[in-house]
Design a protein around this nucleic acid. Structure first.
Length: 923
RNA sequence: GCGUCUAUAGCUCAGUUGGUUAGAGCGCUACCUUGACAUGGUAGAGGUCCCCUGUUCGAGUCAGGGUAGACGCACCA
């Protein structure tokens, strides 16, 4: 084996081995365990958030698979209507074409071509991460069977009256020329203005001043509203104002909605271009005048001079016109929430159009109950509040999109505008008995991408057919996803799955945090702080990293800054850390807090951890490969160290399984790390050396230790495998044949997860090893603090031994000599004079290191004084507690006993330190 | 406005039903190329647990009130 672990050499071959041998398939036996992959956009590439979530899912899936469950990780990609259409439209733009030049059919063909060619990017990247979904079952949301499910659901909901079509005010994206749902609109505070404008009364008796942030919409005003109790305006209600520019007369109405304190207390009402005005317009039966074309330019409903103007140009012109007429009172700076499309970034326009909606209220009810009853559980739990809050105020869902790419709405219209819904034209003709000469035209719209995603839990299992998968894997076990799509996706899956299968879609919802950079900033192209998980795996040269981060920026002026910061943070580029290190990092950062600040130094640390494992393996192989490990029989004598490491392994295994069932991947990772490095490598391997290298230890003892070395390592690999799939399989291939584990299995993936064994717990061995450790640490301590060279072998004396000390000493002397680098250990008999020494305590036993020629008197005094101070503080604090009557009378006896024992121990140690000080002082 | 979350070592984070001297990794200091590993070993330094008040024998942990920050939903034209 190489001296350092080199991940890139093994990963690709290893993955190909797993995939080509069908190891990701559900076994078909055992308890069903299923995870649904949140389908990434087919246009996507793997970002840190994916990498994190996929690590979590893969760890769970590998764990359950090894535990013997019938484990399915259902994967696939999402057709991502807008995103995908935009990608291909950009390509067309580069050829100086638009989608309209191609026409709908050719354009869709072109998207399919693109998908065939480039759509697999993210799934290839997932493979690099070592994920193990069943690729043979991979689906795409536009696959025929998925499309069939979509159509079926649409038709059924329509037939039940839960899908309807209506003319309503919707969020209109004037760049993408489509309606979008409420969730796709991001409102953020921006600097704007408030215009105060005079509206003269029609009878010439005065005027009203209205305040608005959108003066251009005044062309579509159909009323001015005031609060019914507003003394300033009460008397004007019912009168008319003459709307400037258009010279239309519109009424002054009274409505509670108006806040007299805000602005001037007079609100212009534009029902066709504002959601609140729309509602008010309906209350007061006001006319609705639509001012805009679909690109948000003024239409024929405005005076000729304004027709065709783009909305912001129109704003300028309206304000100028009012100003000229002396109707502009003032312009105030004003902060307001501006709604923008999450894809296009342009200001969203409330726009009156015909759209399709899902009436969600009746679907929401059982979905709320599923969480309230505990049938579905959010982890961490507090997310259910967010869920309830949204679900209780849920609005009908606008599902139609004016795009070409997506599931086309299965609705047809005759020439009278009558609507028919069905699977296809002929089915509809038959169902409704329509004569062949009646012309039918299919609706041009497609469905919101999230509509098909909402069916993921059952559509991927073959619904509407009654398949065995549907039976077995609905509900799935756990959904791993981010809080950002609880409304978009999670809630809608619960509603649809309840509705169409009667079942819940999943039992647990594990909500992961958002991956941020090490300063807690969101990773974004414009900040230039994006890390690509593949770069952490493979490494990347500085120049390549810089050009990657600065190319294709939305704001190219930031490129310089990004370049500078990148060069500063990564002067040598990013090293190759390998997949296992990256995965372990994600696991170790996966605590329950909302956000995760990704710290590069952690990846480096876990790369080192991989290397540690690799080298521990080299050591084990070196000592077992050519030797008798007891596999063919022969007597095995297990030393106290052997029994100890097995015992500690049980603790680690139990802790790991508990943490996994709590979704505490950070704690699970920590327990693996601690055992592997601090117990197995730091102590057990060191302790094994004296036995293996000794001329005096018996063959059965050597065999016992070799047996333990290879088998504990083999168990460790299986325990670590869910988090670190590559290195564990690579090592396991080498070591499993030497272990007692069945070696006919072709990958660790298919090996069973270690089973907890109470019989291997050995408290006596653990206590014995604690004694050995504190003996050795005591000596190392003195060495360290007294600056005694590590190479200097010491002679130590012991005194005040108990019977147990003597027994332990007798059985471990060789190890103590070796690990503490001692020449000799000599026990002083009772009353025997001890030379001036530095002292360490193991319980009540004293370890003496004679000072002669080694230790400076003052240094030792200083060390003792430091120890004395600390002990005195301990004694005082503990005494204080025990002297407090309230404590003694009210605290539980166990706590009091503990305090008493602590006091006794501290007093004993303090006495010894004081004695020692006197002795040294006397020199 | 309604709701959620966060504050612990220089940095990134753990800390269970309140109970020894508050932990880990990284970084830092000193020493060590010892036969698995310098991507290493040994030892060490480093904390007013954001602030205040309360409950309690006992509070990082519980309650109330602040301060600072992050986020979600609904929003006033």
């Amino acid at each position: 084996m190489e001296k350092t672990f080199n991940p890139s050499q093994i990963e690709k071959a290893c993955y190909a081995h797993w995939e080509s041998n069908g190891m990701f398939r559900a076994s078909g036996y055992g308890e069903p365990y299923c995870i649904l992959l949140p389908p990434p956009n087919v246009t996507g590439s793997l970002h840190m958030g994916h990498a994190f979530q996929h690590t979590v899912m893969d760890a769970l899936v590998r764990y359950r698979r090894m535990k013997g469950d019938n484990t399915l990780w259902q994967c696939g990609t999402d057709h991502a209507g807008i995103a995908t259409q935009m990608v291909v439209e950009r390509q067309l733009n580069a050829e100086d074409k638009t989608r309209h030049d191609l026409g709908r059919e050719k354009f869709i063909e072109r998207i399919w071509d693109w998908k065939e060619e480039s759509g697999g990017n993210i799934t290839q990247q997932m493979r690099r991460l070592g994920t193990s979904p069943d690729w043979e079952r991979e689906v795409f949301t536009m696959d025929p069977n998925l499309s069939k499910a979509v159509q079926e659901v649409f038709i059924q909901l329509f037939d039940e009256g839960l899908i309807y079509r209506g003319k309503r005010l919707v969020n209109w994206d004037p760049a993408l020329l489509t309606a979008v749902s409420d969730l796709e609109v991001i409102s953020e505070e921006e600097d704007g203005h408030m215009w105060h404008m005079r509206y003269p009364l029609a009878d010439g008796s005065g005027e009203l001043v209205v305040a608005t942030t959108r003066p251009e919409t005044m062309l579509g005003d159909t009323a001015v509203a005031v609060h019914p109790d507003d003394e300033r305006y009460k008397h004007l209600v019912g009168k008319m104002v003459k709307l400037p520019i258009t010279e239309r007369e519109i009424p002054i109405i009274a409505d509670d909605y108006v806040d007299p304190e805000f602005g001037t207390g007079c609100v212009k009402i534009t029902p066709a271009h504002d959601f609140n005005d729309y509602e008010m317009g309906k209350r007061h039966q006001l006319p609705m005048i639509n001012l805009f074309t679909d690109t948000a330019c003024l239409n024929e409903n405005v005076p000729e001079a304004y027709r065709g103007l783009e909305r912001f140009e129109a704003r300028k012109r309206v304000v100028e016109a009012l100003d000229t007429k002396g109707l502009l009172v003032q312009i105030k700076p004003h902060k307001l929430k501006v709604p923008r499309g999450d894809r296009s970034g342009v200001v969203i326009e409330p726009y009156l159009t015909d759209q399709w909606y899902v009436a969600v209220e009746s679907l929401a009810k059982p979905a709320i109950e599923a969480v309230e009853s505990g049938e579905i559980r959010f982890v961490p739990e507090n997310w259910n509040k967010t869920y309830y809050q949204w679900m209780h105020n849920i609005q009908d869902w606008c599902i139609s999109r004016q795009l070409w790419w997506g599931h086309r709405i299965p609705a047809w219209y005759d020439e009278n505008g009558e609507v028919y819904v069905g699977e296809n034209e002929s089915a509809i003709r038959e169902k409704h008995g329509l004569a062949p000469d009646i012309l039918l035209k299919q609706d041009n719209d497609v469905l919101d991408t999230w509509f098909s995603s909402a069916l993921w839990p059952f559509a991927t299992m073959g619904w509407p057919d009654k398949t065995p998968e549907l039976e077995t894997f609905v509900p799935s076990s756990v959904l791993v996803t981010g809080f950002d799509i609880i409304f978009f996706w999670v809630a809608r899956m619960i509603m649809m799955t309840k509705k169409f299968t009667g079942n819940i879609p999943f039992k647990d919802i594990y909500i992961t945090g958002l991956i941020r950079d090490e300063n807690g900033d969101k990773m974004s192209k414009s900040k230039g702080n994006v890390l690509d998980p593949i770069d952490l795996i493979d490494g990347i040269e500085l120049e390549a990293l810089v050009s990657k981060r600065t190319s294709g920026m939305m704001q190219p002026q930031l490129a310089k800054k990004v370049e500078k910061a990148t060069r500063k943070q990564f002067p040598d580029g990013i090293a190759s850390y390998g997949t296992d290190a990256l995965r372990f990092t994600f696991a170790s950062l996966a605590s329950t807090s909302r956000d995760i600040n990704f710290d590069m130094s952690r990846v480096e640390g876990y790369r080192n951890f991989c290397n540690k494992i690799w080298n521990a393996t080299r050591f084990v192989l070196m000592n077992t490969e050519e030797f008798d490990t007891g596999k063919q029989g022969g007597e095995l004598t297990l030393s106290v160290f052997d029994r100890w490491i097995w015992s500690r392994f049980q603790d680690t295994l139990n802790a790991f399984e508990q943490h996994i069932s709590d979704y505490r991947f950070d704690l699970a990772a920590q327990s693996l790390y601690e055992f592997t490095w601090n117990q197995f490598c730091d102590w057990y391997l060191e302790l094994s050396k004296p036995i293996l290298n000794s001329d005096t230890s018996s063959e059965s003892a050597k065999r016992g230790t070799r047996h333990t070395l290879i088998n504990v390592l083999e168990h460790m690999m299986r325990l670590l495998h869910p988090f670190m799939p590559y290195i564990t399989d690579e090592i396991w291939q080498k070591i499993a044949p030497l272990s007692t584990q069945k070696s006919d299995v072709i990958s660790i993936m298919l090996a069973p997860f270690p089973e907890s064994s109470e019989a291997l717990k050995d408290n006596q061995a653990e206590a014995d090893i604690e004694w050995v450790k504190s003996f050795i640490v005591g000596i190392r301590n003195i060495r360290g603090e007294m600056d005694i060279a590590p190479s200097k072998k010491l002679d130590v004396l012991l005194q005040n031994l108990s019977g147990a000390d003597e027994i332990r000493l007798a059985s471990t002397t060789d190890y103590l000599l070796s690990l503490a680098k001692l020449d000799s250990i000599q026990v002083l008999s009772k009353g025997e004079e001890a030379p001036a020494s530095a002292t360490a305590l193991v319980g009540e036993m004293e370890i003496l290191i004679p000072m002669a020629g080694l230790i400076d008197k003052d240094a030792e005094l200083a060390r003792l004084t430091k120890a004395e101070d600390k002990l005195e503080k301990d004694v005082l604090r503990t005494q204080g507690k025990l002297n407090n009557e309230n404590f003694v009378s009210k605290a539980p006896p166990a706590v009091i006993d503990k305090e008493k024992a602590k006091l006794a121990d501290a007093q004993m140690q303090l006495a010894k330190v004081k004695e020692q000080k006197i002795a040294i002082n006397a020199l």
